[in-house]
Amino acid sequence: MNLQYSFTLALLQAAAVYGYANPGACSGACNIHDPTLIQDADGTYYRFSTGGGISYASASSIEGPWTGRGSVLPSGSSIDNSGKNDPWAPDVQKVGDLYHVYYSVSTFETQISSIGLATSETMEEGTWTDRGSIGVDSKEGDQYNAIDANLLIDGNTNYMIFGSFWQNIFQVTLNGDATSSTSTPVNVAFEPAGTHPVEGAYLYKYGDYYYLFYSWGSCCKYDQGMPAAGEEYKIKVCRSSSPTEGFVDANGVACTEGGGTVVLESHGNVYGPGGQGVYTDPKLGPILYYHYVDTTIGYADSQKLFGWNVIDFSSGWPSV
């Protein structure tokens, strides 16, 4: 571990003792929404995000400087949906020899939605192939909304979780090359109260447990109207010894019955953190990454920033 990473890790761990750590440093292209993170074989970081046909950037360090690399789907998606020209909420994973970017095609606050897939061998601009829908779709009246996909590869099984509001988070299994669904969606998380504000889940295995991270609350358009205090985005988690069922929070409340332990919420100048994922950094270990509003800068969606923190799992529950 080099000196820069050692110093950064020490600062973040020390801050966590006294409360939520501030986001790690970011330079370059840091204004993003719904980030997802991976590294290539050379250790270069690639970060994909909502907007611009799934725009992406690269950097030699998670701190940056982040440099724009272009768009995964510059002409939009091939999926027949009114939102096809603005795919969003990407999830990047390495499946075999291919990089997979799963994306959502929908329009805000509707259920007519699909999860699509683009693949590339190198992640270079212009090399992405749009494969269209993976067969996870929704229509008005369904229990779920087919957006916010995340893939967990666990042994020989590909688990995909997805969903937003309605009855919240569902799971399917995908085929061997993770290109299409092979099962009926099963509900794994539900907030029965209010507007059911649960979305953007991310399933991460650490030790003996599977951790279901998700965003809770009002995500967007804060500059047009602020939610009531405490109703803004925050990151919660449940865990289970199974990847498919039995997720509970730290108090033992089932995630399908409104359970959820807060991992990160508004603090200091940080407001509405969410749209998260978890990445196992080879130098820093597990990293929670997300977008957030810096209240000293502005509340518009276009002003949201890339945030990240080292995760401490020493208690059996993630903290930053």
Rank of each mutant, 00 (worst) to 15 (best):
residue 31 N to S: 07
residue 292 Y to D: 06
residue 267 H to N: 14
residue 92 V to D: 02
residue 120 S to W: 10
residue 15 A to P: 00
residue 162 F to P: 00
residue 29 A to R: 01
residue 240 S to L: 08
residue 259 G to T: 12
residue 53 G to T: 01
residue 214 Y to K: 14
residue 278 V to Q: 00
residue 64 G to C: 06
residue 122 T to N: 06
residue 262 V to W: 04
residue 179 T to V: 07
residue 290 Y to E: 02
residue 267 H to W: 12
residue 40 D to F: 10
residue 56 Y to T: 05
residue 181 S to V: 05
residue 90 P to E: 09
residue 76 G to A: 14
residue 43 G to D: 06
residue 273 P to D: 14
residue 259 G to M: 14
residue 24 G to Q: 01
residue 279 Y to N: 00
residue 83 G to I: 03
residue 15 A to Q: 14
residue 94 K to V: 05
residue 134 I to T: 01
residue 73 L to T: 04
residue 177 D to M: 10
residue 308 W to F: 03
residue 152 L to V: 12
residue 244 T to C: 06
residue 10 A to N: 12
residue 51 G to H: 10
residue 17 V to G: 07
residue 62 I to M: 04
residue 138 S to Q: 07
residue 169 I to R: 08
residue 155 G to M: 10
residue 75 S to M: 11
residue 187 N to K: 15
residue 189 A to T: 10
residue 6 S to V: 11
residue 277 G to W: 01
residue 94 K to G: 00
residue 320 V to D: 02
residue 202 Y to P: 00
residue 40 D to S: 09
residue 107 T to M: 03
residue 12 L to Y: 06
residue 8 T to R: 00
residue 283 K to P: 00
residue 4 Q to W: 08
residue 18 Y to M: 07
residue 60 S to L: 05
residue 303 Q to W: 11
residue 63 E to Y: 03
residue 175 N to S: 06
residue 126 G to K: 06
residue 255 C to W: 05
residue 63 E to A: 15
residue 75 S to F: 12
residue 313 F to D: 14
residue 303 Q to E: 15
residue 289 Y to N: 03
residue 238 C to S: 10
residue 172 V to P: 02
residue 160 M to P: 01
residue 269 N to T: 13
residue 272 G to C: 14
residue 249 D to I: 06
residue 138 S to C: 12
residue 108 F to G: 01
residue 242 S to V: 13
residue 102 Y to M: 09
residue 244 T to A: 12
residue 175 N to K: 15
residue 88 W to A: 05
residue 236 K to C: 09
residue 35 P to W: 00
residue 88 W to T: 03
residue 238 C to H: 04
residue 131 R to L: 12
residue 258 G to Y: 08
residue 63 E to N: 11
residue 135 G to I: 08
residue 285 G to I: 02
residue 275 G to H: 15
residue 307 G to C: 03
residue 147 I to K: 08
residue 307 G to M: 03
residue 191 E to W: 13
residue 278 V to C: 02
residue 293 V to A: 11
residue 272 G to P: 03
residue 99 Y to T: 00
residue 319 S to K: 15
residue 224 Q to S: 14
residue 125 E to L: 09
residue 183 S to Q: 13
residue 71 S to C: 14
residue 185 P to Q: 14
residue 85 N to W: 08
residue 258 G to L: 13
residue 304 K to V: 02
residue 268 G to E: 12
residue 279 Y to W: 02
residue 291 H to D: 02
residue 159 Y to A: 04
residue 275 G to E: 11
residue 227 P to Q: 09
residue 207 G to S: 13
residue 126 G to Y: 09
residue 302 S to V: 10
residue 159 Y to P: 00
residue 3 L to P: 00
residue 109 E to C: 05
residue 93 Q to F: 06
residue 229 A to R: 11
residue 107 T to L: 02
residue 286 P to G: 04
residue 60 S to F: 06
residue 152 L to E: 01
residue 264 L to V: 08
residue 91 D to A: 05
residue 308 W to M: 05
residue 47 R to C: 04
residue 199 E to L: 14
residue 277 G to V: 09
residue 13 Q to L: 12
residue 273 P to Q: 14
